[in-house]
Design a protein around this nucleic acid. Structure first.
Lengths: 132, 132, 132, 132
DNA sequence: GTGGTCTAGACCACG
DNA sequence: GTGGTCTAGACCACC
């Protein structure tokens, strides 16, 4: 699992980390019991302050998605799969919905909108394969 | 033109106002020369502090989208159409792109993704008709 | 770099801060990469509201003069030198020009005008040495 | 006497009108007893709201520079000359002083500064002759 | 009535 | 500690 932060996203780095873990668990790329990078490793990988990485893990633990075992590491919680599934569905629905709303408000026709979506899907699928 | 702020959006109220003006101009719902609500009126309508409304207008003026005439009101700039067209295309591309990325990362199949988009398009189109 | 606001100036406090940074960078007193006072520190020094200081920095960032790194501080942008050089030349030309116009309109002879300028130059040079 | 407002000046239109009258009286271009344009005439000439013109005259009257004779017109006060002389000297000193300070802060050498002043003087003198 | 700017104090997220 | 944004309320000048 590789983490990457987009500084231009409206979501803060901490939230992006939480999102990425959530989506990875929901999609099965991260299975319950799997080990996540250490706080320091995550911080180094995502080019983020260790404090931010630690806070993100803390929030995920609070949400029941991960379990932190002091002195050992951070692991995907056994019940993490279910939690992430519903959470991620809600997030995707909400964000895609908002983006579509904007596109319609901006005057895109259904055809144009679908073109944009298609291109994005192709781009994302390629990226996704690479990482899988 | 009606303004509405979604407190759950990751974009701040000020940014949402800027977005809504930009999209409305790009789609032609607001034509160059059209008068926008007053700072105070917009604030009342969007349930936002007048200061926030003023700042949003100021940024839009800086971007060449609107023109503020002190003591008179705020108007869509003559060249606002062109500016918004490119600006809004970029925004839509970027945000739809991001949302699709997330959906793919969350494990949605192309079919599921298109279903979500379709539903969102229908919902948004209805909303949009009502306001038009 | 010390900041000071003249409440009798026709320029607003926020504009005065922007001017002072611009001139300092243009003259080389502030080099690209140099760290500027924090928003709160500047506010305390200039006896101004932190909000006003933050706005001034934001405008300067928008103009490409400074770079603000959230959670870290505000720095003179690498390309700030060039931007300020032309910006400051324009400002000086415009404002000296306006002041001279007024002096001529007020009926000062060229000789009187030059006397006033000479005295001002001497005063300002002394002040300037002190701060350098 | 012709009035002209510079919208890019940091001084508000109302202040610019007051300044222009003050300087014209101080320089002798307007003698005590001379008649000034009517409020409406001034407003039309300076492309300013009649309210603004009226307010400027009111302030000048309050300062003892002009006298308004209801139903007749606005005239330069008999003692206006003396009042304007000292007032205008103070204004010129202050504004030229400020502009020179800025130029020095911007890093102009004495030579460069004098060049800018010389050019401005020549420009202003030409303008001034035309209007005289 | 209009916009423009300032002060004052709050909350958030990052370092 | 840092910057970013918001709310709240004030004053100014112009229309």
């Amino acid at each position: 699992m590789r983490f990457e932060i987009d500084p231009r996203s409206p979501r803060s780095p901490g939230e992006q980390i939480q999102d990425q873990v959530t989506f990875a668990v929901a999609s099965g790329r991260l299975a319950p019991g799997a080990r996540l990078p250490s706080v320091r490793g995550l911080a180094a990988q995502a080019l983020v302050n260790p404090n931010t990485a630690a806070r993100a893990y803390r929030e995920l633990e609070h949400a029941g998605v991960v379990e932190s075992r002091p002195g050992d590491g951070v692991y995907v919680a056994q019940r993490g799969g279910a939690r992430c599934a519903s959470l991620s569905a809600k997030l995707v629905e909400e964000r895609l919905g908002r983006a579509v709303e904007e596109a319609v408000a901006a005057g895109l026709s259904e055809r144009e909108l679908r073109d944009v979506v298609d291109r994005a899907v192709r781009r994302a699928s390629k990226e996704h394969e690479v990482r899988t």
